[in-house]
Amino acid sequence: MEERKEKIKIKDNNNSKINNGLKNNTDKEVSGDVLKIGKYIFKSRLLIGTGKYPDFETMKDAASASGSEIITVAVRRIDFNSKENLLSYIDLDKYILLPNTAGCYTAEDAVNTLRLARELEVFKTDLVKLEVIGDQKTLYPDNEELLKAAKILVKEGFTVMPYMMDDPVLAKKLEDIGCPVVMPLASPIGSGLGIRNPYNIKIIKETVSVPVIVDAGVGTASDACKTMELGVDGILINTAIAGAGNPVGMASAMKNAVEAGRLSYLSGRIPMKLYAQASTQMEGIVF
């Protein structure tokens, strides 16, 4: 609660009518509220993956329902036996494809994967999602290899979006070497556990000046909303949508949750109080 008060105080300096929230800020702040990653600007704060859907048609519909502008894909050997082509379900005029380095355990492999991706014309930007895995069971990233790879890729002109532990020190290091965004995990990839350490995510947000996108671990729409209420700039979700009973419905739920969470954060929640405070005035009461 103290933290929250402090935040409101800080905001008060900038805008004395913060408690009237939306009325004063909607036009200026909220409608012009965009996500900036390096030189790129996005309206949507939800990024989604393309893995684990029951079929490509569902993936396509879920992507559309999510309102996302960025969707992640992997770079893999062509499967000559596969009859279906993922690309035929993705409208390249509508989405920016973000190549990932999933499955890479060394900086060298991750860097080479993205250099290879650069040869694919379907990737129209230099945005890349960098992940260097350090452990098979948790899929936690390897900090040393991640930093090593990020340094090389930034030098080579990539706009590097690093998937990282929820570690504020590491976030600062990644920012310092030129990553225009950091992407701490909420909990292990595909776990659906939600945010296991919201305090670290808040500290990361306060530590770096680049946007913070929470990547991995969100399980359901309330997780997404709560995550956005922490003040982060976006969320990357795959399994929670792809693995839902109705992925298209969940994609829509996530879209709304991310938007609601963002608005809620910008609008400023009320402080928590232990006792009731009547919302109806007592003045003029008859009995």
Binding site: T50, A74, V75
Partner: peptide, 26 residues
């Protein structure tokens, strides 16, 4: 192999070729 080199790049016996594209991923 950069795209610009494709027409001139001659392959040799037992070369290991990787042909890649996009695949589902998060």
């Amino acid at each position: 192999v950069p795209k610009s080199s494709y027409p001139a790049f001659v392959l040799n016996e037992n070369d290991k070729i990787d042909l890649v594209t996009i695949a589902p991923g998060g």
